[in-house]
Nucleic acid binder design. Structure first.
Lengths: 343, 343
DNA sequence: TATTAGCACTCGTCTTGTTCGAGTGCTAAC
DNA sequence: GTTAGCACTCGAACAAGACGAGTGCTAATA
């Protein structure tokens, strides 16, 4: 949609004012905007047009206007286009080193929340390239064999497998060699029934154990399809009266804790192939069926911690969120995450 | 505090009614209680006494009475004493088998929340007896050795240790034997500097690697001092008008997500040595400095998943929570968790 | 002496009516 | 095309009054 210059500027003025105050804005308020120099009456006429175009809404007859979802959309797209051009890098948040991934993610999500004053989330990175790198069986005690599976990217999964009787050390060594020889370097899709049957046959008496290990490996890799999601600053929604009333807040908090909905958003963000940068979902656009998100906007971004380890960060706030600032903060965090292991 | 029979029954009637309605209860309401058979006027006199004793409070002159924290305390203690006697086991919730501890905990906390309609939490079990059971080093690739440490209770920790050059398979076998021979069966406190020095000496060129492994083992065990906390049903607080207003809800949600406060409660519960059963904190008694918990009651219980693996489950709700039901549900869950690995 | 009926009084809640003002659309003048 | 002026709309805020649940006190009753 292309909008005449002046209408666009009036729309921007309306939205900016509304972002700041959260109250419907009237024609007189806009007419005071220095760089427009138009009377309230003129503004009124333009506003009337903008309403007809579906960009702004009048909550009731004698109130000012508020932006519609479509209006926000136009505004946000324009802003992103501007940002693309300017490309200024602001120094701001700084990540401290963490030796555990979990703690890094928790740190990031907290930073997001405190810097933006919106509810924030981060998903643990999902491994898109999931080859098995290494398998190791060890006899832990008489009843248990420990299977350690290392996936490409040095992700480690363990499973305890119950066994009937202790396995001879020499046997175990053979099994380890068998498994590594046949499976190392393979992606999970490449492990077909024929291969499994062949390995089982070679394993002889221990075929059941081997089956269990392969099963565990498959499950381990699959588990990463459901990334962990960390959240922070859910209580920030109470800063915004339009979300703070009981029923809305309740649903948002519920969604936020349940993580089902957040999972959908993460999946959506990662699934979109051309998502290099930042994605903005406004109101009804949020990929969450029904529920409490239709009064929110969600801004997401994809980070790549290291080769093939992609995750999502997200901000959830009112539709009148400070998109400008949010996008800035997210870009900063993204850049830092992308460089995290390269330093 | 000992209370005359009749006063106690009136107090109980007041509290029960208030638990159900959440509104101040008047003398006439109580006089209709069949098993008391007293007129409103008599009740009024008794209520006046109860107020003087600090057990109930009048929010304003022409309102009914609501229980004070002390009143609740008396009521809860009495209820727990009753329960002790009757000891009836009700069948109810049933835990499904889960192969991953994390999923089990998530299942439990969700069950708690849906069965009680209060916000719930569960802490992962803390290992009190933390002996090393088994250590395994494996060469994963040229730059990395994987150390797997199994702690008593079959808890598994992994650490990737960077190395300068590949280690010969025979060498690695020797190191494994060295580590297991010296460390298996020891608790972390038993591993002193002398022992470490001795092992390092035997490790020869690989002394640095060995030092790293021991370090990782220590860290792994230590990490369990900060148990993971899972929550569910935070949105349930909106069911109770006395907690649902903006400022209170905001603080409670904040505390709930931050997990700092919940961690304190968990620590408090586990620290109390004579806590065999269930603990109830009412209002100001909640072990959380300041914050939003002073309008809540917290009921906690300690479970023991298997020998020495103790964790805490907790319910957070309004002071007028259905203590009776909550205690029942918690007892059921506790029993099932205690038996979980015995079946 | 313990209990109860009766009554005046209190005080928060709900309802209703009124005012106020921000904002609009329309018309006519510039 | 822009602007000033004006009548109109409608929610928010406020005040007054009715209502009623609940109390404390007193006097009568068992």
């Amino acid at each position: 949609m292309e909008l005449p210059e002046r209408k666009m500027r009036i729309l921007q003025a309306i939205i900016r004012t509304y972002l700041a105050t959260g109250e419907p804005v009237g024609s007189r308020t806009i007419s005071k905007y220095a760089d427009l120099n138009l009377s309230a009456a003129t503004i009124r006429n333009e506003m009337s047009d903008l309403e007809e175009l579906g960009l702004i809404i009048q909550p009731h007859t004698s109130a000012g206007r508020i932006p519609s979802d479509v209006g926000y959309r136009l505004y946000v797209d324009e802003m992103l286009r501007e940002k693309e051009k300017s490309q200024q890098e602001r120094e701001g948040v700084l990540l401290a080193r963490e030796d555990r991934l979990e703690n890094l993610l928790k740190q990031v999500v907290k930073l997001l929340a405190t810097n933006t004053n919106y509810a924030s989330m981060i998903s643990s990175p999902v491994i898109s390239r999931n080859k098995i790198k290494f398998i190791q069986l060890s006899q832990v005690d008489a009843q248990h064999v420990l299977a350690v599976i290392v996936i490409e990217g040095n992700l480690i999964r363990n499973t305890m497998i119950p066994v009937d009787e202790e396995i001879d050390a020499q046997e175990l060594l053979k099994l380890n060699m068998l498994l590594n020889g046949n499976l190392a370097g393979l992606a999970i899709e490449q492990i077909n029934i024929g291969l499994i049957a062949a390995i089982k046959q070679q394993a002889g008496v221990h075929s059941q154990l081997v089956a269990n290990v392969i099963d565990a490996a498959a499950k381990a890799i699959e588990a990463d399809e459901h990334p962990e999601i960390y959240t922070s600053g859910a209580d920030n929604i109470f800063r915004y009266p339009e979300l703070a009333d009981q029923s809305k807040a309740s649903r948002i908090i519920g969604d936020f804790e349940e993580k089902q909905v957040l999972g959908n958003i993460v999946r959506e963000t990662l699934a979109d192939p051309d998502t290099e940068g930042i994605q903005v979902y406004i109101g009804g656009e949020v990929p969450a069926r029904g529920q409490g998100m239709e009064d929110c906007s969600v801004v997401t971004a994809t980070y790549e911690l290291s080769e093939g380890m992609k995750g999502t960060i997200g901000i959830i706030g009112p539709k009148r969120m400070d998109y400008d600032k949010v996008v800035d903060v997210m870009k900063q965090i993204m850049t830092q995450l992308d460089d995290y292991y390269k330093q």
